[in-house]
Amino acid sequence: MNRIDLLFKRKQNDILSVYFTAGHPEINSLAEILPALENAGVDLIEIGMPFSDPIADGPVIQKSSQTAISNGMSLKVLFEQLRNIEFNIPVILMGYLNPILQYGIENFLISCKEANVSGTIIPDLPLSQYLIQEETFIRNNIHNILLITPLSTDRRITDLAEKSRGFLYAVASSATTGSSSFHNADTSYFERIRSLNLKIPIIFGFGISCHADFIKACDWGSGAIIGSGFIKLLEHIESRKMDYTRTIADFVCRIKYGNSIQK
């Protein structure tokens, strides 16, 4: 069974997923960040595969991608790093289609499987094009997770929900990553999603950066994804030479419970 499905079988609420870019801030940072997140009690991890032209991302993730590429990160390096780390929670790779095409889609999915990756999020692989590849994803037991937005029609949401595997990624506002605040998101969109009675879990993303956002996302869906907010933390850790494990545990605690770990 896919680890994402196992997770949702065990836990339907308060899912916290954290995103970071592979190869950022340092080429090997993943080896510290991934275990730190798992130990801190995060439920899902999304690892960004850096791309030179990330059109759906705001400045924070763009910058981290650029740093990662100049650090020498590539799909080949990423898979090598993942194969050398032990982890038990579901890991999802998120990134753009072109590097995957150059690697070869089938090769990419095989490498995912070998590296214990459970799913993918590929923003510029639209549903119509994904369907051409769907069988290859399923055969390799890699869940491709699809996105919905406030501008998606009910019909479109239903179609995407039907084809998304593991969960459905609900972009909270029509925006690039990190550019809007979840707090101000339009609740009529959340109500609309709820009224569709979708069978697949909904995880909210884009603009989530604090405990209040997380609670709100958990009220309307199964949980939330934090991306840009966490990347900023990583830059802070790196620039001040702080301890990854403790600082990340503290961050996760603040998001989940609204207060820091007491010393």
């Binding site: 759906a56 289609l97 923003p123 510029d124 639209p126 996105l147 501008l151 998606s152 479109r156 690039t176």
Partner: peptide
């Protein structure tokens, strides 16, 4: 050709 666009641009 085609349209390899994020869902946000679809509408």
């Amino acid at each position: 050709g085609g349209a390899y666009i994020p869902e946000m641009l679809l509408p």
